[in-house]
Amino acid sequence: MMLLQITTQSNPLSVSSVLFFGTMGMLALAIGLVLFIIFHQRRIIRYQLQLKEMEEEQQKILLNASIRWQEEERQRIAADLHDDAGPLLATARLYLNENLVKQDISTQLQAIYNAKQIIDDTIQLIRNISHSLMPPTLKNFGLESAVNDLFQKISGSGTINASSRFHDYRQRLRPEQELLVFRVIQELVNNILKHSNASFIHVTQNYNEDKFFIRLHHDGRGITQTDVERLNKSALGLGLKNIQSRAKVLHAKIDFEKDISQTYYKVTLEVPVEEYEMID
C-alpha cells in the first residue's frame, strides 16, 4: 500500500493508468470470484438434481419390483387355492352328495370317511399357505427360532448342509423388523438353492456398536456388488430388488462380496438399531 502511494507520488503521470488498471483488475477479480461461486453452486445444484433423479429412478425400480413380487405372490396363493384346495373340496362335495342317503350304511360310512380325509388334507394345505405367508415360529418364538427352523428343514432335505448361529440375540428386534430380516434371509437362501449349486450355507448373527449384523456364507456360485448393480439396472433379478427394497425399509445396508480367501461368497446385512426400540 505504502509502495503504491510512493509510486504515485513520485510519478503523477502514471496515477491514471495505475488507477485504471488497478481498479479494473480488482473489479475483474471480485466479479470473477462472485461468478465462479455462482457457477460452482449451479453445478452443485445440477449434480444434486441428477442424484435425486437417479434415486427416484431407483425407487421406481424397487417399487415396481415390489409390486410385481406382490402380484406373483397373489398368483401363487390363488393357484394354490384354485388348483389344490378347489379340487379337494369339490371331491369332498362329490362324496357328500344327496344320493348318499340312498346308499347302504357301509357305503355311507366309507364316503364320510373319504370326505373327512379330503377335508383334513385341505386344512393342512390351507395351513401351509398360511405358514408361508407368516411363519408361526417367527411370530411366536422370534427370528432366531424361525431361521433355525428354516435351516433345519433345508438340511433335512439332505441336498445341502445348512446351519445358523446367533451369537448375540438377547434383545429381539421389533416384530416387523424381524419379519423383514427373515424375508431377506429367505430370499437369499432361495436364490442360493436355485442358482448357486452350493454344498453349504451358514448364517451368523452378531450385534456390534448399535448395529445388527446377519452374515450369510456359501460355497457355490455367488454374486458380488458389481453384479447386483448391473442387475438393478435390468429387468432381471426380481428377488434381489425385493431384498433391496426390504433393506431400504429397514434403513439397512446390504453387501454382496467374495470372501478374502476367494473360496466363499458372503452377504452381509447391517441393520442400524439405534433408531428403533428393541424389545426384551
Binding site: 503504491l4 504515485t8 495505475v18 480488482m26 471480485a30
Partner: peptide, 10 residues
Amino acid sequence: SAGTFFLFIS
C-alpha cells in the same frame, strides 16, 4: 472494496 481500493490508496 475491490473497485475503490486503488482509488482510496492513491
